[in-house]
Amino acid sequence: MNIVFVLVPLGLMLLALAGWAFLWAVNHEQFEELDRAAQSILFEDADDQLGPPASERAPEP
């Protein structure tokens, strides 16, 4: 059971890492605009493989 003396501090280090990552994300404004990120998945940079093609929608200027 002495292994806990190694594992628990190791866990603490991971916790510190997680905490640091979280603070980094907050400080770099990763949580400022949550809606856009959710929608960005819909916009493919390359020719997209999903979704109906333009021709099936009403043509619009």
Binding site: L12, L15, G19, F22, L23, V26, N27, E29, F31
Partner: peptide
């Protein structure tokens, strides 16, 4: 306002992580 919001989020995150542990 944004800075206040971030500060609040930081505190909340730290509390959440700490509470889980």
């Amino acid at each position: 306002e944004a800075a206040l919001g971030r500060q609040e989020l930081r505190r909340l995150g730290v509390a959440g992580l700490g509470a889980m542990q």
